[in-house]
Amino acid sequence: MARIIVVTSGKGGVGKTTTSASISTGLARRGHKTVVIDFDVGLRNLDLIMNCERRVVYDFVNVIQGEASLNQALIRDKRVDTLYILPTSQTREKEALTKEGVEKVINELSETFDYIICDSPAGIEHGAMMALYYADEAIVVTNPEVSSVRDSDRILGILQSKSRRAEMGQDPVKEHLLLTRYNPDRVNRGEMLSVADVEEILAIPLLGVIPESQVVLNSSNQGLPVILETESDAGQAYDDAVARLLGEEREQRFMTNQKKGFFSRMFKGG
């Protein structure tokens, strides 16, 4: 059985697609057969970040509606041969994702893949609900700021009440916190929440901290998952996160210089 992992956040622009691309690439590079599905119907981005936008013929919605087979729609990554991308449609509506249709596709993928990564759209509407519904695990991507943390909290509540696991009364969806765009200097100046602040509020295990970096922007413009930038902080941070996802113990990095967080400054007069 495949592990089904949703990458979600509630808030937009926090790095869900970047994370989906890097986590799936990282899993595949370790030899696990991995597929990453773009659930953001109408705002197709994943194929750009994976640099396969010119190879899209059929998409997720075509498969759901029976217009193409899964094998016709899956795109094999050119860099990592155990990685596949299931792109989404740019022209359809989110409602094209039906619960039954998504289930059929996920079941079929489960037969051959080790990991299914679901790249969720922002918000808590239909597309986001479909992306998280079948998940076994969730990577909650959060930026170190109050509104992003609030939205992540909302998504965590939905995972624990509206997912298939919740509805069936099975073990709850396993939650991982991934803090992205982290800047220790700005944390020190009290402009950002610290890792400790976010962990304290959300109360879920920390999968990793991805430092704010120009490399992330550059690589996504080039269609390169940032995890392949192995020299960069952000690339290494994603590699750590993948290792932890697979059960390895790795010390947290890239969160240094943290002395006083936003909250302690605000409220204790730091």
Partner: peptide
């Protein structure tokens, strides 16, 4: 378990105890 943003927990008859 934590009561998350957007959730509502209701004890219509007695006390409510939350360990999170």
């Amino acid at each position: 378990h934590p009561v998350r943003s957007g959730q509502q927990i209701h004890a219509p008859e007695g006390d409510l105890i939350i360990l999170a």
